[in-house]
Simulated scan of single mutants.
Amino acid sequence: MMDLRLLRYFLAIVDTGSVTAASKELFVAQPSLSRQLRRLEHDLQLQLFARVDRRLVLTDVGRQFVPIARDLLARAAHARTMVGAIAASSTPDLVVAGPTTTISDIVAPFIASGGPASLANVVETSPQDVYEVVARGQADFGLGSSVPSRSLEAEVLVRVEVWAQVPQDHPLGDRGQVDLAEIVTHPLVHLDTSHAVRRAFDAATTRDGLTYDVVAQARSPRLGQALAAAGRGVCITSDDPRYDLASPQIMVDGEPLTVTLYAAWDRDHYAARHIRETVARLREFTAERYGHA
């Protein structure tokens, strides 16, 4: 069994840059810390550090081991939290993972509206990493726009409409809806392809044989909205409007273009029942806020 204390010592040396600095942070004598490092290397049968000019420098193997060590410590901390909740027979605190936009537009308003006290923390991730964070045990459930793997239990949380956001005085500003074929005749401010909105838009235009011009591409939806407000182009997004932008729905074959948001978690999670209850309440909230549940 791997000694977690040795992993903490190892990461302290990595993070502080030396055994001397780590010993002060850990309140462990320097000779003892050096022995513990050698013990970890012996247990792993790996050389984690090389000595260069009297300094410890991570080897290639050591650099590869750093994220593994961090992951193991994170899982151990999560396990202690779970055991504590089980021992107390109380409603566990839940951590949700999701992209920044999902956290700010859905999770934060849900908590502010009186969401369950058990939803205690969030982990903001890239859109691609949501389910990986859940699989590593760093969050109890995740909210993502890609279809979760079959190894996770998953439910549709909401189908969010995609909008063409423009200034109020734009030719589309007084429209409640606009057809996809008309949207592509305007210069577009698009999100990059890591966003589900962009992928859904591209799939719809490809299916209909349409092309479009992108005048700017933004990683952040808020930046895309700012560019639209500055008159640079039509921002394609599912975010709540900002900067006094109008938001006509984008229609495809008479139906709103939408992006599906999923909630996913480990089907064997000790708090699976509480997660389902939280997801059900979150679904009700998002249905009222966005519709298309």
Rank of each mutant, 00 (worst) to 15 (best):
V14N: 03
V52H: 08
V28G: 01
D53A: 07
E132H: 10
R54D: 15
A117W: 12
Y290A: 07
V95D: 09
I236V: 14
S194R: 11
A164R: 01
P167H: 05
V96K: 10
Q168H: 13
P67H: 07
L282Q: 12
A76S: 14
P167I: 06
A271L: 05
D202K: 08
A226L: 10
R276S: 13
L172Y: 04
R38W: 04
R75W: 11
I103P: 11
S247Y: 13
P148N: 08
L191P: 01
Y131H: 11
I250D: 08
E182S: 01
R219Q: 09
D3I: 05
D266L: 07
L56E: 00
T20H: 02
A204Q: 04
H195D: 01
G114H: 12
R289W: 03
A12E: 11
L157P: 02
S18Q: 04
G137V: 05
R63Q: 15
A69S: 10
R175D: 00
R159N: 12
H269Y: 01
Q36M: 11
R8P: 07
L143E: 04
T206M: 08
F10I: 06
A21T: 01
E155F: 10
R70S: 10
H274M: 02
S89N: 15
D140K: 06
V189C: 03
G254Y: 05
D71E: 15
A77K: 15
L245T: 06
A293V: 15
S90K: 15
S34R: 13
R283E: 09
L4Q: 14
V215S: 04
A12F: 04
R8A: 13
Y243C: 02
D213Q: 13
A88V: 09
E25M: 13
T20Q: 06
D202C: 06
P187S: 02
L73G: 11
S220L: 09
L26K: 01
A112P: 00
R175P: 00
S23F: 00
V19M: 11
G114Y: 13
R159Y: 00
Q128T: 14
T20G: 03
V130H: 01
S32G: 00
V147F: 07
V134T: 08
D202T: 09
D15W: 01
V252C: 13
H269Q: 06
T91L: 14
G233I: 08
D266W: 03
R35Q: 06
E288G: 15
F141C: 04
D71A: 15
V66W: 06
T205W: 01
A120T: 08
Q168L: 15
D169R: 09
G224S: 03
V160C: 02
R222T: 10
P187T: 00
A293Q: 13
G98T: 12
A263I: 11
G233N: 05
D268Q: 12
A112N: 06
R159G: 09
E124N: 09
P99R: 11
S247C: 12
S90Y: 05
Q47G: 03
L11V: 03
H292D: 11
R159H: 08
V259Q: 10
T258M: 09
R70F: 03
Y243P: 02
T16D: 01
R63Y: 04
L191Q: 00
